[in-house]
Design a protein around this nucleic acid. Structure first.
Length: 220
DNA sequence: AGCCAGGACTGAG
DNA sequence: CTCAGTCATGGC
């Protein structure tokens, strides 16, 4: 599994994805681009990005796209705004906890938080697991943490690489790639693009009968 | 009609 | 410690 070769092949096939580059969007009142990336990572948990965009748009219109805004907004109003992203009871609580943490420990600056927070610090927050923590560190903080998701596992599976634990996948990629946040960023986004295309193909063609199952080689 | 999205937490055994 | 159950809306 030559990761750089796979990476170049994905770039050729799908082009640059440009996920959350945190463009130099102006940071007006109630609008913090880095914070937007952070809550996007939470809102998209087991949820299509399309639905997340609606929720973020609601927050934007209410000027709640920064840590203080989310920390202070009424609970029920927050739930209504993020409703399209699903799991609104759980996710509103998750957003509150993250926002309050940033307000308390980083003076409400999501950028400062994204640059200085440790992985363990994020994982200690209720509602943030390994994938969300890595997404925040990589896409909001530009830190070299490789993100593993369901599509990444499927890609590995296709090459006969299979682990049980999230961190085994993470180590597999990080040990075989240069420690480069920009590369991690694009690679993960490309893997998602690959996974989504592959799923569409499965649904449209080959009415999910007789799918060839490859034997999974378990690696140590 | 179901199944599933760029997961994570909880409770039972 | 493992693992099914739960959470919720929108798209297909």
């Amino acid at each position: 599994m030559h990761l750089m070769r796979i990476y170049r092949q994905l770039v050729k096939q799908f082009g640059e994805q440009r996920w959350w580059p945190v463009r130099a969007t102006k940071r007006a009142k109630g609008r913090d681009p880095v914070f937007e990336v952070m809550i996007g990572a939470i809102l998209t948990q087991n949820t299509s990005w399309k639905n997340v965009e609606r929720a973020i748009e609601h927050l934007h219109r209410a000027r709640c796209l920064d840590a203080r805004g989310v920390a202070l907004v009424d609970d029920e109003q927050l739930k209504r705004m993020i409703r399209p992203a699903g799991y609104f009871n759980q996710k509103s609580r998750k957003l509150k906890i993250l926002a309050e943490h940033i307000v308390t420990n980083y003076q409400g600056s999501a950028r400062a938080a994204a640059e200085r927070m440790t992985r363990a610090e994020l994982l200690a927050l209720w509602g943030i697991g390994p994938e969300t923590a890595d997404s925040i560190l990589l896409y909001a903080g530009n830190r070299p943490e490789f993100v593993i998701d369901a599509y990444t596992r499927r890609l590995c599976e296709r090459y006969g690489v299979c682990f049980d634990d999230y961190h085994d996948y993470k180590a597999y990629f990080e040990q075989r790639l240069p420690q480069d946040a920009a590369l991690y960023n694009e690679f993960h986004a490309l893997i998602v693009a690959w996974g989504q295309l592959r799923k569409n193909k499965e649904n449209t063609s080959a009415r999910k009968g007789a799918r060839s199952k490859m034997q999974q080689v378990r690696q140590k």
